[in-house]
Amino acid sequence: MLEVRALDVSYGDAPALWGISMTVGAGELVAVVGPNGAGKTTLINSIARILPSRGGSIWLDGVEVTALPSQAMCELGVALIPEGRRLFVGMTVEENLEMGCYRPAARLHRVQGMERVYEIFPILKERRRQIAGTLSGGQQQMLAVGRALMARPKLLLVDEPSLGLSPLITQQLFEVLKKIHADGMSMLLIEQNVAIALDIAERVYVVEGGRIVSTGKPKDLLATRHIREAYLGEDVEAGSR
């Protein structure tokens, strides 16, 4: 589905990512975890082509997409749920969903798409005439997910969905993401909440300082001392767990 080869990204002269190589298989849920400022959002924005890269290449279903603009990525079935949601806050819930299916191929399925989103998030149907900026944080994140689903993507890029949400809402949201994945969606998830990311992902990349430092299945990573100490706050020395 998605393949990233030796991707380099920099902001001006300041390099942010060095030689990132990773894959997301069809129907796979892959998580990228790492501390603040590690370059996770840079990575996902670069894959969505809203941020240019300096070196390396990005491939989608065997086709190189490195030189394409973000609109073309949308046409090819990649939908981004950006960090901080970034809804069209002055527009209504329904209008935000309609922007999700702006691309002509998705527009044909506007009605079914909207029914599906309202089925997953009934609250959005209730609030469909409300201005998006007046929704609660959790509802806004639901709308951001809904907007992405409206694009009928093959690959969902999810950036830090738990940001600013309560643990309960986060848990509900991850149940939904899990379900969307179970229905066959390929997903690349970026998450600071490592415990929850390891819980849902099939494969994980750990990014630190703009480089991939380790990768593997969640249970293998959970077995490593670095992950348990640095991300799960366990004191391995003391032999807890």
């Binding site: 969505a48 082509r49 809203i50 603009p69 973000s70 609109q71 990525m73 949308c74 046409e75 939908a79 981004l80 950006p82 970034r86 069209f88 806050v89 002055g90 527009m91 922007m99 999700g100 702006y102 691309r103 907007r147 694009a151």
Partner: peptide, 11 residues
Amino acid sequence: ENPIIAGAYGV
């Protein structure tokens, strides 16, 4: 409102 995200949705 947000040209970058609108662009990512095909605008």
